[in-house]
Design a protein around this nucleic acid. Sequence first.
DNA 1: GTGTTTATCGTCAGGCAGACGACTATGATC
DNA 2: GATCATAGTCGTCTGCCTGACGATAAACAC
Lengths: 252, 252
Amino acid sequence: MPYDPSAFAPFAVTVDLVVLTVRRHALCALAVRRGEPPFQGRWALPGGFVRPDEDLSQAAARELMEETGLCAHAPDAPAQANGAHLEQLATYGDPKRDPRMRVVSVAHLALAPDLPAPRAGGDANSARWAPVEDLLQQGGYGRDGEQAAPLAFDHAQILSDGVERARSKIEYSSLATAFCPPEFTVGELRRVYEAVWGVALDPRNFHRKVTGTPGFLVPTGGTTTRQGGRPAQLFRAGGATLLNPPMLRPEV
Amino acid sequence: MPYDPSAFAPFAVTVDLVVLTVRRHALCALAVRRGEPPFQGRWALPGGFVRPDEDLSQAAARELMEETGLCAHAPDAPAQANGAHLEQLATYGDPKRDPRMRVVSVAHLALAPDLPAPRAGGDANSARWAPVEDLLQQGGYGRDGEQAAPLAFDHAQILSDGVERARSKIEYSSLATAFCPPEFTVGELRRVYEAVWGVALDPRNFHRKVTGTPGFLVPTGGTTTRQGGRPAQLFRAGGATLLNPPMLRPEV
DNA sequence: GTGTTTATCGTCAGGCAGACGACTATGATC
DNA sequence: GATCATAGTCGTCTGCCTGACGATAAACAC
């Protein structure tokens, strides 16, 4: 029975962002430092309120632009500019997830190529890329020796769900190319898979698989030696979005 | 910057349900007839407001119980009682999706075995199981000759997303068993796949596949002839939730 | 030149899926 | 009771894909 006025209760609705990238062979997420209570000083996922005249995906794209300068693609128009992939992840609405009031957060997942430094209102100390293991491990120490306090609110859960979504989605879609610059080599794409899955892949079998899947990669004709060694062919992402058969994630 | 008071705006938050089942070899969804404007008299998905002290999954489970009498399983505790599978689907928040006010709807997907007649406050005319094609085709006529008006709000989109989720999820998980009674035969499970995917599957290859996947099916020892023909072994759903390698949906 | 690094091509064996034949066990019909 | 229709179950065969891994190619460092 929708819209019984007696049952209506107002909620605050926010979007939170899991922004993932691959830096230095590690899967990293964007974290911002909270400047106010609750969880003041703790790291959190970027996010903010949905405005009254905004769609959820618009709000997520706006937040992404504000935090990273990235222009997001709508899920309907997947393309490859200097933008990121953006999709809805899940919605979190536990009554106690924010101690102050009832907040429902629609989390979104963004996949971006390696970027320059993050910007959060120009304050370099208030935003960073951090390896997801550092953000998710409870109470340990990050690789730079910094105390790794748990993320604010339920953001550890949200980040964990986002990472799991990314790990499974690159199996059966061409989304791994969203972590790459517009032109990339097979080796660079392989290192994306290795970083996201945390495994080592056989370069020969990987090469055979991705070049043999129709529509996955399109050669641009150029080559590069930016990785050292023999020059590698450059590719762009092809039109295919679904990989059939999928990439197989090694067991264990 | 979460929680800037100047940006806060109140929203109404609802849950809508895509409840799917297989009846008479067809994938069907639960639809309720709206008794009040807007879209009065049109069919819609069941749903309602989230209460102030309720989690989203609790609200979805409550609505499911109110509409069908089904007891839902939490996603964390997948089991097989006389309950249904329930999971979050996606969230819909277009500013114009409800003409009266800003409503954000967290849609959930429920998969249930074939049930007796639906109940919606005892009013038999206000709830029904309808084949999803009938509900999704715009302006045509259903199989019973009834005018098939489009679903209210954006519920056609929600239903379509839910069906697509179910279609893809039975590929790589054991969720198809959620459409079956606690004990079922391989043939009954195959007819579930055929109804959800809308294809015909080879009974011999299907039998080899499902009985050969460890943890998918557990024989109970009993047999049945309720489908006619040679008696078939009865199975329960095994502990495995992910199928590896997955069931392959035939092309075209 | 020698060694190192990365890219790319080839080969081979094992596993799985699709196509399909064969046989079994029940109820329905003549 | 014989026959038929129906549904279930077991096998076989072939082709494709994957994992393991050898071999060669083309750059750079020394």
